[in-house]
Design a binder for these strands. Structure first.
Lengths: 235, 235, 235, 235
DNA sequence: GATGAATGAGGATTCATTCAT
DNA sequence: CATGAATGAATCCTCATTCAT
């Protein structure tokens, strides 16, 4: 009604914008929800807040998502998507050494996934997995396993061509995965890990982890270093 | 006043046997709370549920803890402070090499902290930190920083005596911390990481991580391995 | 989530017809709250009861008032501020004698304030003041002091023009205020003061009080009547 | 147990004190309850607080009083007692004039009743009457009516002997009662009436009220002063 | 009798969800 | 479709009352 009587161009612009928005609503809601779920957790995020951040009313949220739980699931499903698939495809055509591939894979993953909001999903899942078992298995199938398979392929290639020493791949994959997951956690749990003194620069962190991963920290590395319970035990 | 007016026999039957065990209550409540907080998160855990699991009534919980939040803090204090302090003390009297110390430290930490219920708290914190800023800084001061300092001491010792090559300690510490945090996450987010096929054996995982940490994965490790953006980039 | 799972016809029947009358709600709630607070006191009045009397649900009450205490304050603000201000304004333009003004003021106050539900608030305050210090000072500033100032102005005028004998105004004001407060108390504590036999007619009561106030009860009044401990003491 | 092994005199003293106390308990509880009920109201007073102030445990309170309501009733009944009866008896043997009697009665009542904790009962009743109808009628019968009868007797005597002009006693009694009730209210509702600036001296207040009651405030009192709606009305 | 630990009904408040406009 | 007023189940917490010691 306010704009009803004037048919100046601005009105059309507004309507056009609203039209476009109509299409975009679910996406805006998902974005807002992602932010808030990551920041505050599922339970502590209020539906109204999500709506407000998306610029719509509470009612509209429930127009697009049956419930807060469904919204949560949609957020996860929407964001888990094909990043890993994409990395896998890239691997198929990659020409360099396995070492380069490790470097490339970790750096690229960070740029395309870890540094984006999507990474918040990983944190979300770890927090809420037990309250949403079905989501957890979805995540398992969509992210965890493909990620492990990709990692495994890279390591296998390095072993095959003599770049890497023989490794138990079931466990070695976590040499790559663990530091990246840890980075996500620190990035997405602002108060938990990052005091003022300790603040990670992601690129430097990744570089260092790659360095340690490939070369270890020992000055004179032993190719075979059997770990056993040391004779020097803690009291 | 509630039951005051009916003094029929059924009333007595309604009351569970009232045991008076003032000394034991707080501990039982803390145990119950730890279980539930770890399992479901802070917000999703109802006060009454905690009480029920401890075998007491709602009211009794609030007899010992001013609020649910205070209960949470008490759980944290009870379960995590001291562990790191203990490890630090152990370090002071340790005789072996820095490598042995790394091995020992990671294995001992796992046995004494990581494998226990307490470790669930670490996962909890990452989820709830933003909703409880003061708790987060408490955790920061009590756990994160002491842990980093201990790790740093060990690495420094190894560098000093030539066991380890020179390292940027600010980042190298995460070579030890990250895999352990990752292990906690997987252990305490049962559905998120551990499908039926992929199930970690913690000791084996730790051994492998130590192996990679000390020796890296390269067949012919380069003592200096500058990481740079590879010429072979992903598409 | 509550009713989400049952979508049987009975569900619709459970919902009372939902009327949307945003403008009207606060007023209706304030009226209901006034009634109940006056009748039962602040603490003994349940929020849900107020809502029910206003014809809305519990939740709606908290939509308009942040808390029960805020509701209480709103009731006070709505009902008592302004009355005294109004009387003060009336005084400014009053033409008659001071005596007439006393008469007029007491009668008008009764009609406009004392006889209305608002007066129940005055009684309320005396009961709940100690539990709501900030409310008490609000009341003090908004009602008590302006009331005293008005009373004092009237008496001063009468003294100045020789209608009244010289009086210690700090205390004389209560010659007017006390009987009116007493009237409020009796009117709003139905069981406490008004048995079947003894039932006050307010207008007659006020007339009588005015008569006694202006003329006293002595047959041959002494202009100066120093009160001292009488030689005839009670045993 | 702490004192079990020493049989020094101090132990006996403690026991002796406890013995004596046992008799006094209900009285101490009633005193504590009176204080707290007057100060905070019925609902806002916690049973435990009453017990604590009486120096006993929560359980003990319910040993002597079936419920908080019964405690309240006992407090009222205990304190309403024979003050008025006493004043009535004093009147029977009083020798002085009716004027002296008014003076005496008001001053004595203040000293023996108004200034004591018992007066808190009057405030209590006005606050809680509607929640405790039975108490209200008890109060009515024990306090209000005897008080009015006494007042009436005094006034009647003054009229009979020509000291007072003819009065409608049904209303004139409140010329004496109202200021006293008002005084009680102000004294027992600390925050409601007494700001820093306005603080009543009871004796001075009573003297002034007596002065006004007996003599009025007019400079030239008219024995007959018919109150009617003045031609000068407030706007 | 006295104690105070334990109980649980009750009440304030929140917030996901509904639905009249 | 969009809105936001209205709803009421759910949850934290209090405190009168009970009862084992």
């Amino acid at each position: 009604m306010p704009l009803a009587k004037l048919s100046c161009p601005i009105k059309k612009a507004l309507h056009a914008k609203r039209e476009r928005r109509k299409e975009a609503r679910p996406g805006e809601l998902l974005d807002a929800a992602l932010d808030l779920f990551v920041e505050k957790g599922f339970a502590a995020t209020r539906a109204e807040e999500v709506a407000a951040r998306a610029g719509v009313s509470k009612g509209t949220l429930f127009l697009y998502f049956q419930s807060k739980e469904e919204l949560f699931k949609a957020v996860v499903r929407e964001n888990i998507s094909g990043h890993i698939r994409e990395l896998n495809a890239a691997f198929d055509t990659f020409e360099g050494s396995a070492k380069d591939m490790v470097v490339q894979c970790m750096q690229t993953w960070w740029q395309r996934v870890g540094a984006t909001k999507s990474a918040g999903i990983d944190k979300l899942i770890t927090s809420e997995a037990s309250n949403f078992p079905e989501l957890a298995s979805f995540y398992q199938a969509e992210v965890i396993e493909p990620g492990q398979i990709l990692t495994r392929r890279i390591l296998q290639k390095g072993i095959d061509n003599g770049e890497f020493r023989p490794l138990d791949l079931d466990y070695a994959v976590f040499g790559i995965i663990a530091p990246m997951m840890f980075l996500i956690m620190t990035k997405n749990s602002p108060n938990a890990f990052c005091s003022d003194q300790i603040f990670l620069n992601p690129e430097k962190y990744i570089a260092m982890q790659i360095d340690m991963l490939l070369n270890g920290i020992s000055a004179i590395p032993a190719t075979s270093h059997p770990i056993k319970t040391s004779p020097h035990e803690f009291n």
